[in-house]
Write a protein that binds this DNA or RNA. Structure first.
Lengths: 340, 340
DNA sequence: GAGAATAGGTTAAGCGCTAAACCTGTTTGG
DNA sequence: CCAAACAGGTTTAGCGCTTAACCTATTCTC
């Protein structure tokens, strides 16, 4: 059996409460002599307080959940973007002495289960659809601090962090328009499911409006965010006679490039391509992919800060934070043939 | 405050112990009438038992740690390979009613801390060097079930799961030798740090021995597993006059391809390239990368099974499991110029 | 020099659950 | 028909920690 607080107390000849105070850094109540003595014993035995016992006795569990949707049978798919966020979140939380519990959510009710079961202090919701977040009810989630990432849900129960999707797509489209393109395709999943895509689509069209140009709805390609789907879409985009395309993800963009190549189009000679996320693969592609970069590090940092501020009772500066994005111009965009 | 077991008991007019038995499915002690009644009340209130309280009272926490090395300042980097494993592990554990705690490990002592603090039932060690695993001591880790992935450590305290690295690299080299290559480079990190690379390197040389061919030690390129390092190595490999190269990772291989292209070599025309892992990017590359595939799904499944078997007291079939690999022949390997 | 404040503790009551031990009425075996 | 077995519970004693309330010398303060 591991050594307990009581064991330490006995060996130091003090009450358990005193050891508790020392371990928790409540200095006011303990003389520095006693503290040193206890600390030495703690050190020697490698004593580590029991977190379950702590969460039971104290109000807080110092545990934050990372909730990710997962089909019941399937494993939760951690795409490169998610993976980056997970890594950053873990670091930030660990720095603040919190722990991360990773939990796939198959049925909506599992959100509540996860929160209640482990008495999570907070949770980060990753990849949920706006509607699911909007459905969360106070009595179901209790006092847990919720931060939803990449959502345009309206539910005030959850703090929201996202990058500026509207602006990202606007920048991409404006860049292409500036190069002289007019027949620009927009490729990505259905806008109805997630606000992210809707925002990007709107930002995209906004660029056209700003430029006083018209956009042909036929150049909207609804396609899953996968390489295979992109490839297939690439051939259709070629057939549609687009001279440029904005994709909602880098994998998708790279798939599209392959489809374009298959259809005999060169990038950026015949068709310009802009991706989204600035994932690693964006710079592995040839030519290197022009893309919209999100600052993952900032996203994770803001998420944790919002979470911890709220946990510490500090009023959050805002219920929803939108982070800036940046267009990274690389090799897949150029002026259309007619212009060069 | 969330509803507790006691609340349920009071409402059902039974003792807490009875509710506990119902919730834990100890059917022998409860009449089916009482059970139904209690279950309905549980359902109505959405009662979920407190996991911390459970782990305190029971012996088990039903918690498994996923321990990943992390530089102190840096976030833990979840590469695509790791990400796949994480997703699969979570699913498998969830199916068995266990939960996953993700924890970056900056200092060796933190392994013990993590285990002790949350009274983890078990832990999966991901990406640790053999030496670190070999250093684990019984008194430090207690009775926790440890499964280390991708290690050739000898420490009997940890069960070990890995794929057949020796065979994977042997297959890759044999494939190239079969095509007629003789000047084959081997690119990867130092073999001293991790047994995985050592195994691959040995498997690689084994293929030469089997073919009765000699291998020139100068074609060993020690290089970090990154795209940038690969690119740089690619130019050196070209300069060394190799006609083929086996890399220990797909990113690395793709970086090398870029370096080769920069040096004016075509793939597979001038130089053949074999990667490792069969990550998504392998099939995004042009030409598609020939690579050694590991079955991630199997790896995760075996890991969890080993873990749970041992937790259930069943004797593990083996302390170390080695999973089969497969060579996926795609577009980056061909016979050398001289042969065609 | 008396009362208040302070330093440095201790005591005790849980937190929500489990599990072993115990109890009581009803079957069952011989 | 009696003891043993069983069904269907209840009681009790923690698990390892926190926290509010309490206690007792010292040291100030005027």
């Amino acid at each position: 059996m591991p050594v307990t607080l009581k064991d330490i107390a006995a060996e130091a000849g003090v009450s358990p409460a005193t050891v508790s105070n020392v371990v928790n850094g409540v200095s006011a109540r303990v003389s520095s002599g006693t503290r040193e003595r206890i600390l030495r014993i703690v050190e020697r035995h490698g004593y580590v307080p029991s977190a379950p016992a702590r969460s039971l006795a104290a109000k807080s569990s110092r545990l934050v959940g990372l909730l990710v949707p997962a089909a019941d049978r399937d494993s939760l798919t951690i795409n490169p973007h998610t993976a980056g966020v997970v890594g950053m979140l873990e670091r930030e939380l660990r720095r603040h002495d919190y722990h991360l519990m990773l939990r796939g959510i198959a049925r909506p009710a599992e959100v509540t289960e996860a929160l209640r079961s482990w008495r999570l202090d907070g949770a980060v919701l990753l990849g949920f659809h706006d509607a699911e977040i909007d459905r969360l009810k106070r009595r179901a989630v209790g006092e847990v601090v919720l931060v939803a990432m990449d959502t345009y849900a309206e539910n005030p129960l959850a703090l929201r962090v996202r990058s500026d999707d509207h602006e990202g797509a606007r920048l991409a489209a404006a860049h292409l328009l500036g190069l002289g393109h007019r027949r620009i395709a927009f490729a990505g999943p259905e806008s109805s499911a997630t606000g992210v895509v809707r925002q990007r689509h709107e930002g995209f069209r906004r660029a056209f409006a700003d430029a006083g140009a018209a956009w042909d709805e036929e150049l909207r390609f609804t396609v899953d965010t996968t390489h295979a789907a992109g490839r297939e879409a690439g051939t259709r985009i070629a057939a549609a006679g687009a001279t440029a395309v904005v994709a909602t993800a880098d994998v998708l963009a790279i798939g599209i490039m392959e489809g374009l190549a298959a259809a005999g189009r060169s990038v950026p000679g015949d068709v310009s391509v802009v991706g989204y996320d600035d994932a690693d693969i964006a710079s592995y592609a040839t030519p290197k992919l022009t893309t919209v970069a999100q600052d993952l590090r900032a996203k994770a940092a803001v998420t944790v800060r919002l979470l911890l501020d709220r946990l510490a009772g500090r009023e959050a500066p805002a219920a929803a934070v939108t982070l800036p994005v940046e267009l990274v111009r690389r090799g897949t965009t150029a002026a259309p043939r007619a212009f060069s």
